[in-house]
Design a protein around this nucleic acid. Structure first.
Lengths: 234, 234
DNA sequence: TGATGAGCTCTTGTATACCAGACGGAGCAC
DNA sequence: GTGCTCCGTCTGGTATACAAGAGCTCATCA
């Protein structure tokens, strides 16, 4: 745990934010492995900042469920809990389905039309880069909730998606998954535009469920490889 | 903003927690009024602790939506936003209704029976103290969600309830409201036990809506009085 | 040999010193 | 009188010093 500090990333107005982003990056890339123990001083030294911004970043990550502090003992990366992820997926479905329900009342479908320009396109116009697809996918699901018009629900949905990010970002690494996503998103949007909300909800639910199962598998294999990698280093 | 420090409260293992609880108490009692500006040094001096635990407490309150920081300028108590509260109420209803749905599948009704011992009682056995009723009411709604068996949903529900606490705690100050609560809770539980979930959901929704409207009214008048009080002090 | 306790070293928790930036007011130019 | 500029004095952001508890090591003693 005493290698050189990795790259900074994203825009950050202060060191606390920067440290937060860098730590999260390390968590997501399994440089910090679930179950690992570490101290504030270690992080501070590696990131070349003082403990103050490190503590602020860690408290944020603790709230988001990634790490936990044991008073006067140290910090631990929380182990991945797939039961928890399943529960979060259920909430996701609930929020997105409910937003579709609200949609038909408010006829707030300008968002929907914008989403269609991204997803209802010819196969050879599709994005193929995994990260780009992932970002568009995030926008799709966030867009559905936003179209529901409840800002607090959007906030909570974003929070849930954030907690799922560590495993969800592994989706879209296979071309087959990318194509399936395009087709399923297009089908959902089409049903919405036709006003067939129940059918859209049904499709949405099975779309999310399929993604959940896929991501579960990929995560386990990635984690296994990361552990191998780390062991090789010693 | 330079009066003597008020009472400490609740159990707190460290000064950051204690400061957090005391600040929240001041927010809830409108000692810190929505819209007020203040600095970390002011709070630190009043609470007789250093800025470190004050900052930690303020960041927690910021996450919860009560205050906000303007970098290198100062802190502000966020004004009450009733649109936001309405949105949170909608989410509450969604979560609690959805938990009832799950209840019938899992047949996890041991929680429900426990709730019935509190709420399905004779009128002269009812609690009348406002704070006690409020606590029981919190347990009732949290209990419904917990019975759904999704721990993450419980966490989010608790978070939503926490954000509503500043206005919800003002309910139950009228005997009439307490009686209505008892009757409505009992009716909901009865429908659940009979397995009539849809009817229970309908009752639950209108129960929460009624409470929302009541609380809205009470909050506005309390806020008005708090402002008068504060002006008299100068 | 095993239990025990002193003490050392690590941790987080807290206080404090210092920094850069924002803001407001005094004073000057017009 | 009006507007501009400079400077002092606030602010939160950060680094660092210090306090106190947890846990481990190792020596000591039964």
């Amino acid at each position: 745990m005493n290698k050189k500090a990795p790259i900074p990333l994203d825009i950050a107005s202060n060191r606390a934010d920067e440290t937060y982003l860098r730590l999260k990056d390390e968590l997501f890339n399994f440089y910090l492995l679930p179950g690992d123990y570490f101290s504030e001083n270690e992080i501070a030294a590696r990131m070349e900042v003082s403990r103050t911004p490190v503590r602020e970043a860690l408290f944020r990550l603790q709230r988001e469920g990634y790490v936990r502090v044991m008073p006067r003992v140290g910090w631990q990366v929380r182990p991945l809990d797939f039961d928890k992820f399943d529960q979060l997926y259920e909430i996701r479905i609930l929020l997105e389905e409910s937003s579709l329900q609200r949609l038909v009342r408010k006829e707030n479908i300008s968002n929907i039309k914008m989403l269609m320009t991204t997803w209802c396109c010819l196969p050879d116009e599709r994005e193929s880069d995994a990260k780009a697809v992932w970002l568009q996918d995030e926008q799709f699901h966030a867009g559905l909730v936003e179209a529901g018009g409840n800002a607090e629900m959007s906030r909570i949905h974003q929070d849930v998606m954030e907690r799922l990010r560590i495993i969800r970002r592994l989706d879209f690494t296979k071309a087959q998954r990318v194509n399936a996503t395009y087709e399923e998103h297009a089908a959902i949007l089409e049903q919405i535009q036709r006003g067939r909300i129940s059918e859209a909800q049904r499709l949405l639910r099975s779309h999310i469920e399929a993604s959940r199962l896929e991501v579960h598998k990929i995560t386990l294999s990635m984690l296994y490889e990361a552990r191998l990698e780390k062991n090789r280093a010693y």
